[in-house]
Simulated assay, not measured.
Amino acid sequence: MKHWTLLLLRISLGWLLVIWGADKLFNVAHSVAVANKFYFGLLTAESAMQVLGVIQIAIGVLIVIGLLCRWTYPLQALLNGLTLLAVLGSVIDPWGWFLQGSNALFYPSLIIFAASLLLIAFRDDERWALDIKRAAAH
Rank of each mutant, 00 (worst) to 15 (best):
G89K: 10
L68C: 12
K24D: 00
V54N: 07
W15M: 12
S102T: 15
L9V: 12
H3T: 13
A86V: 06
D93H: 07
P94L: 10
W128G: 00
A121I: 14
L68D: 00
Y39W: 10
H3W: 07
V54S: 13
Q50T: 05
I55H: 01
A136F: 02
I11M: 04
W95N: 12
L118Y: 07
L62M: 11
F26E: 03
A33E: 08
L105T: 15
G53T: 10
N80F: 14
A114K: 05
G60V: 11
L78P: 03
G66R: 04
I92A: 07
L7V: 04
S109R: 03
K133W: 09
W97Q: 14
P94V: 10
L85S: 08
I112Y: 11
V54E: 05
I92P: 08
L75T: 13
I63A: 02
L13Q: 10
M1T: 11
C69S: 15
G21P: 02
L42R: 08
I92D: 03
D124K: 13
E46G: 05
G101R: 03
A136S: 08
A129M: 05
G21F: 00
L68E: 03
S90M: 09
V51M: 13
C69V: 06
L13N: 11
L13V: 14
I92F: 08
L75P: 13
V61D: 01
A137W: 07
A121G: 11
L16Q: 04
L110E: 10
V61I: 15
Q56I: 08
V64R: 05
H3K: 12
L88Q: 08
F98Q: 13
L6M: 09
V54D: 06
W71Y: 15
Q56A: 03
L13K: 07
A29W: 01
V91W: 06
K2Y: 04
L75N: 06
L16M: 13
P108S: 10
V54I: 15
W128M: 02
G89W: 04
W71H: 09
D23A: 09
A135V: 08
I11F: 01
D131G: 13
P74Y: 04
H30R: 06
W95M: 15
L6W: 02
G41Q: 00
T83E: 02
E126I: 04
W71E: 06
Q56V: 03
L6S: 02
D23S: 11
N80I: 09
I55G: 09
G89F: 04
